[in-house]
Amino acid sequence: MSASKSISLERSAATGKRRFTLTNTQFSIILLLPALLTLAFTVLYPLLRGIYLSFHSYSLVDLVSGIQWVGLENFKTLLSSSAYRSVWGTTLIFVAGSVGGQFVVGFLTALVLNQDLAQRNLFRGLLLMPWIVPTVVAALLWKWIFNQQYGIFNYVLHSLGLISSFKAWIGDPSLALFSVTLANIWKGFPFHMIVLLAALQTIPPDIIEAAIIDGTTAVQRFRYVVLPYLRYIIMIDLLISIIWTFQSFTTIWTMTEGGPVTATTTLAISIYRTAFQAFDIGMGAAIGTLWLVAMLVFSAVFVRLFGGTRLEV
């Protein structure tokens, strides 16, 4: 970089004129401008406007009143509503179940694939397929599998003697959340598998060999060599997937539309229903604002607890 800096300031020897040159910082910012301008329009402005709207009453049904300042009224309504609290409960169960399931299956598979197995790359490719299938397709497919009368989920479980009668996996409020979570685990585990497998392959073999010579057991090596080595990547992997799963809309919407009643209504579904079905824009924005604050706090705490250092990307 020092070389380039000196070049940019140097007078052109041939002409003797000072060339019009940008400093590296100016050049850097010009490269960033298209991205920053686009994201300012599609993300930053909508975010700020959303926060602004959350302090207002604004209904697309009631066009006469327009946008009216209501202060903290939307937030007060939300925080005192048991329906809102139950949406948070549903969201947390969905996120914990999905990410937990995906991570455990993904990590276990990565550890298995990290051995010297024949056809390892073929297995990895085939196991990525659920992740490649479009989300709408996966959701419709699982809805078909969970079909009460003709779905193969009931048929297989019944044949194995695990259930005594065919169950309404989608239609029964006590089962629907389990069903969408299971579909989401199926769809999402390959991402963790890929990321963690790549991370495992960066562990220098001699560290493991040294640990083996020291007479450690496999469990000890996992606990004291592998896990510490993967700490940062596990943090990133979990953080990304927790954030994404909070956002997850398509799977649930396609399978249940948040129902039956509100059994699978997560925050993402709740915003959509409030803002785009009940047209209560102010309240939808307020749900989003509280969710955002929660994510910011969560991420900061998570990175602090896990990493201990600042986030380096």
Binding site: T42, P46, L47, G50, F249, A268, I271, G284, I287, G288
Partner: peptide, 8 residues
């Protein structure tokens, strides 16, 4: 939240 961005 994508739903919130979507409003604007």
């Amino acid at each position: 939240p994508q739903g919130m961005l979507l409003i604007t």
